[in-house]
Nucleic acid binder design. Structure first.
Length: 417
RNA sequence: GUGAACGUAGCUCAGGAUGGUAGAGCGCUGGGUUGUGGCCCCAGUGGUCGCGGGUUCAAGUCCCGCCGUUCACCCCA
């Protein structure tokens, strides 16, 4: 019986791994330079964590979670995003008692029950950061800057940073009401989904792609006009820092994002070349989230980046500068040299990537295998050379050959490869 | 969750409107040639046509259901 693959998940085969390593390596080194430390939280948590944090009115919680009950009847959920788990870890380990600021990053799989599509899978991977304990606008800039730096280091083109502010618990309710009363006037034009949003979460209507709503949105009240003094100042400073750093951005007053916990700064990094799934990075500030979980009043913010989407972009641009280590292949003329071959291979493998051929088989078979696995150089031990303690090396792509002394084999190879 | 297209050999794909139990290229295996791989030549290997059901004397082809892929909606990373 053949067992297939569940919908929306995939194997990441060895051929793909260089992309993953490149992204992880690049991101890690940037995170470390900004003084972020890695954290690994569980893949599943209590369902409640996401319902309270991500928000019960969000699509993620309402219809996209992988939720199950364990043998004791507890409701558990495969994490659909990284932030709630990190906040939970912050509280579980009472980090706030020892560290005024906590800056962490994570890399790992997330799970959402959605219809798969280009750049959208049921198991997908994100890397991201969370900062707890800093309310100053510089840190908003830093978080955006880190995301951009990762993309720039990977030489990505056609990316755009969009930013907006959603206000705080002081000014947001006023905006919410203004938006609600504005769209209420046009309730007849709204789709059933948008009507529901009107009650539940009017900000989300700004996200609507309904044709009729798109034109209505033009004249809708904008969150930036409703910001309180403090929020306005905060936003101005963030954008000012972006300008100082020469980081191009666009203020998008309709950017609201699909998670409930955001306050003040929200941002997205999008690309024009990924079709419908154009967001590569998303993030923002969440000054009330720690409190929502019953913790102290600690401000926070972060972003998440979709690794699969980033890989799609890297492939499109075909700019991947991943160098493969040259592969050496060791072959012998006949079995008399088997012992010698094993001795040499021991030395070689301390320094190079080496495949030892099927030494009991004819040389011809050994070489054929060398060709098939794509060897770059083949070392051949044969009778005429071994007496003088020499070995033959052939550049398998060009066919060029050389005899080199076994005594300084490593040194010679180092200069050749 | 909605809509559309698609699923034939290990891979890329033909065949399908007009039903008669499958083809190509590449790959793979063996042999020839080559000191000792590639190139070339010869021979061979390949498929419950995604799965299940239905119509029919007969289904890869028509119909239905399921699974999967892709794209869009939706949503987001």
């Amino acid at each position: 019986m053949k067992i297939g693959l569940p919908r929306g998940v995939q194997d990441i085969l060895p051929e793909e791994i260089p992309y993953w390593h490149l992204i992880e390596k690049t991101a890690r080194s940037i995170f470390e330079k900004y003084n972020y430390e890695e954290i690994r939280t569980p893949i599943f948590e209590y369902t409640e964590l996401f319902v309270k944090g991500t928000g019960e009115t969000t699509d993620i919680v309402m219809k996209e979670m992988y939720t199950f009950t364990d043998k004791k009847g507890r409701s558990l959920t495969l994490r659909p995003e990284g932030t709630p788990g990190v906040i939970r870890a912050y509280l579980t380990n009472k980090i706030y008692t020892s560290k005024p600021v906590w800056k962490v990053y994570y890399i790992g799989p997330m799970f959402r029950y959605e219809r798969p599509q280009a750049g959208r899978y049921r198991q997908f991977h994100q890397l991201g950061v969370e900062v707890l304990g800093r309310k100053d606008p510089y840190i908003d800039f830093e978080v955006i800057n880190i995301a951009v730096e990762i993309l720039k280091s990977l030489e990505l083109e056609n990316i755009e940073v969009e930013i907006n502010s959603l206000g705080c618990s002081q000014c947001r309710p006023k905006y919410r009401e203004a938006l609600k009363s504005y769209f209420s006037k046009y309730e007849d034009l709204l789709s059933p989904i948008d009507k529901e949003r009107l009650e539940r979460n009017p900000l989300r209507i700004l996200d609507s792609k309904d044709e009729k709503v798109i034109s209505l949105k033009e004249d809708a009240p904008q969150p930036l006009d409703f910001l309180c003094e403090d929020c306005k100042k905060h936003f101005d400073k963030v954008t000012n820092y972006l300008s100082i750093a020469n980081l191009n951005y666009k203020i998008n007053p309709k950017l609201v994002r699909g998670l409930d916990y955001y306050t003040r700064t929200v941002f997205e990094i999008t690309t024009t070349t990924l079709g419908a799934q154009n967001a590569v990075v998303g993030g923002g500030r969440y000054d009330n989230l720690v409190e929502t979980y019953g913790g102290p009043q600690i401000p926070g913010l972060g972003f998440a980046l979709g690794i699969e989407r980033l890989i799609l972009l890297l492939k499109q641009q075909a700019k991947l500068g991943i160098e493969k280590q040259k592969l050496l292949f060791l072959a012998i003329e006949d079995e008399n040299y088997l012992k010698k071959a094993i001795e040499i291979s021991q030395v070689l493998q301390k320094n190079f990537k080496v495949e030892v051929g099927p030494l009991e088989e004819p040389l011809r078979a050994q070489l054929r295998l060398a060709d098939k696995i794509g060897a770059d150089f083949v070392l051949i031990i044969n009778s005429s050379l071994i007496e003088r303690n020499f070995i033959k090396i052939r550049d398998f792509k060009s066919g060029e050959e050389k005899n080199i002394s076994i005594d300084n084999l490593i040194e010679t190879l180092n200069t050749m490869l």
